[in-house]
């Protein structure tokens, strides 16, 4: 029953992807598109198999960077949200700045960070943190401010301390919102890691991409894209599963 329901959700997009790849494959041979311009899916998968071991080390490097950045970004985002939630003046003062910070293109900021902090891991972590913390912080603040008033009144009248209210009511209440933010942050963190590796790295999928771009290996760039998409999907899935487990009480998520 359960498997059948999951399958019924999976097969339509799966079919669409297969169809898309099929048309792509046919089109490349039908219109005789050059391999350096647009390689066919079979070309790409052949290349992926040939590159195997090397790709895995690059993927590992990216995964490590991304997971570290995502964890730190999430922690920073939550910390910012909790602080601003409890100090309304800070919230008023800093909220517009936080929004403004998202208008600074990360592509422009990344080289600056390299100049300031060198080519080590620190500037890369900062890049990922910058893209990650925003969706988490905004979602968490939103969730915290929506706390049910009757429940809040109840806790206050019962004489609950600020900490009790925070840990027993506000955080669990904001959890669904925080998890939605985390899903967005998770996919952003992959992008952040790739950008960080573009700017300056000696390994990782982003670095691999830059390398292949300079030698016009379109097929290998597509391999890199496929890996990035897979990582993003895996992260999204992982957070979704975590969300399902954390919010298992939810009536609509039976």
């Amino acid at each position: 029953m359960n498997i059948r329901r999951i399958w019924s959700n999976v097969w339509p997009p799966l079919l669409a992807v297969i169809l898309f790849l099929f048309i792509w494959q046919i089109a490349t041979s039908l219109f005789q598109i050059d391999k350096w311009m647009l390689p066919s899916p079979t070309d790409i998968s052949r290349e992926a198999a040939a590159e195997g071991a090397g790709l895995w080390t690059h993927t590992q490097a990216t995964l490590k960077l991304m997971l570290l950045g995502f964890s730190i970004g999430t922690a920073v985002g939550l910390l910012v949200a909790f602080t601003l939630h409890y100090i309304p003046f800070l919230r008023k003062a800093l909220y517009p700045l936080i929004i403004l910070s998202q208008n600074v293109p990360i592509i422009a900021l990344a080289p600056l960070l390299m100049i300031w902090f060198g080519f080590g891991i620190l500037p890369k972590i900062i890049v990922i943190t910058l893209v990650c913390f925003f969706p988490i912080a905004v979602a968490a603040m939103d969730g915290l401010s929506r706390t049910d008033h009757v429940m809040l009144d109840y806790m206050r009248m019962a004489g609950a301390s600020k900490w009790d209210i925070f840990i027993k009511l506000e955080v669990p209440y904001a959890l669904p919102a925080i998890m939605s933010g985390a899903k967005i942050a998770a996919t952003y963190s992959v992008m952040g890691a790739i950008i960080a590796e573009w700017i300056g790295a000696s390994k990782g999928i982003g670095y691999y991409m830059m390398l292949q771009k300079s030698s016009f290996r379109t097929d290998r760039i597509f391999v890199a894209i496929a890996i990035i998409v897979t990582i993003s999907l895996a992260m999204f899935l992982l957070i979704s599963l975590l969300e399902k487990w954390l919010i298992r009480y939810h009536p609509s998520e039976r």
Binding site: D148, V150, M151, D153, Y154, R156, M157, A158, G159, A160, K168, L169, P172, Y249, H250, P251
Partner: peptide, 15 residues
């Protein structure tokens, strides 16, 4: 606060 026991209008149980 903390001197009375309050039963609100809607149940407001923590889900």
């Amino acid at each position: 606060r903390g001197h009375i026991s309050y039963v609100p209008q809607k149940p407001a149980l923590f889900p």
